[in-house]
Write a protein that binds this DNA or RNA. Structure first.
Lengths: 148, 148
DNA sequence: ATATACCCGACGTTTTTTGTCAAGATTTTA
DNA sequence: TAAAATCTTGACAAAAAACGTCGGGTATAT
């Protein structure tokens, strides 16, 4: 398994896009400004998100990114998978120098453990939608500016 | 989060120790023979397991390793933590070049996601004991040699 | 046209993981 | 006591992964 800054960055990006999207395409520069992350790196992540059709892009002046589906229908799991690949690569599957990739005497009881773990992780991450995060984040920030 | 071959190797080692321990200390060479893993590397992992007091060692001829507690009281989580450190290091905690480690506009709704995920992972991994794995593995292997 | 902004592949650096080595300490056994 | 087996430990080397940067390209609004 592997959850790295990529996943964290990607989520921050897409959350910002979800938050500001209603007011038009969100440029990378805007995300950088708000989140303080390396622009060139984000470019790559956003590319991946687009290829997975989680976001769409608008080129040219005034361009930027927009969600490609309602926030509620995009889950944290989807975002992570888009940028990190399979969120939990089964360890048993890895190639090792020694070759014989799972021939240990334990047969592969461990494989079951990893498989179950993967399942639990995916279930949880899939249950958290961007809409939920957005709501919570608005709750936290709540500038003075009252409800409109 | 980070689960690598270290964790997998360490589990294989300790399972073998659990399996063969009853017949006396289990030498690294025996583990290598059975599991086909790099000896010098295992040495390091076993050291970590020992320091965490999950196993104990016997030096000299006929020496080797033994569980330091009943298999039932050692969980997969304990083994992984021993060799990989915190099984799920909160991403928000990491230092980044840019400094300000979590100042993004999302405050840190994400922190909650990671925290919950961590909890779920730990709960599961902590619920799986070595005894259980051992039982399953015996079930799978079941040589002709009848009971007892 | 020009400025803005996405597109995308290639590259370089750093960090982590994986693996190896060598010298030492302990214990059994002959 | 000498030899052999076996753990102990730190240092080092190699490989892989993650992180970040760059430069040239394409599309679009003004």
């Amino acid at each position: 398994m592997r959850i790295t800054t990529q996943g964290d960055y990607a989520l921050k990006c897409i959350l910002r896009i979800a938050a500001d999207g209603p007011r038009g395409p969100v440029a990378i520069s805007r995300i950088v400004e708000k989140e303080g992350l390396p622009l060139d790196y984000l470019e790559q992540l956003l590319l991946k998100l687009r290829r997975r059709r989680l976001i769409k892009s608008v080129r040219g002046v005034k361009g930027g990114y927009l969600l490609n589906a309602p926030a509620a229908s995009i889950s944290v799991a989807q975002v992570l998978e888009a940028v990190e690949g399979d969120v939990f690569e089964l360890i048993c599957g890895r190639k090792r120098k020694s070759g014989k990739s799972c021939k240990g005497s334990q047969g592969c009881v461990l494989k079951d453990v990893w498989k179950n773990l993967k399942k639990k992780i995916e279930t949880y991450l899939d249950s958290v939608g961007l809409d939920e995060l957005l709501k919570r984040s608005r709750c936290i920030h709540e500038k003075g500016r009252g409800p409109r």
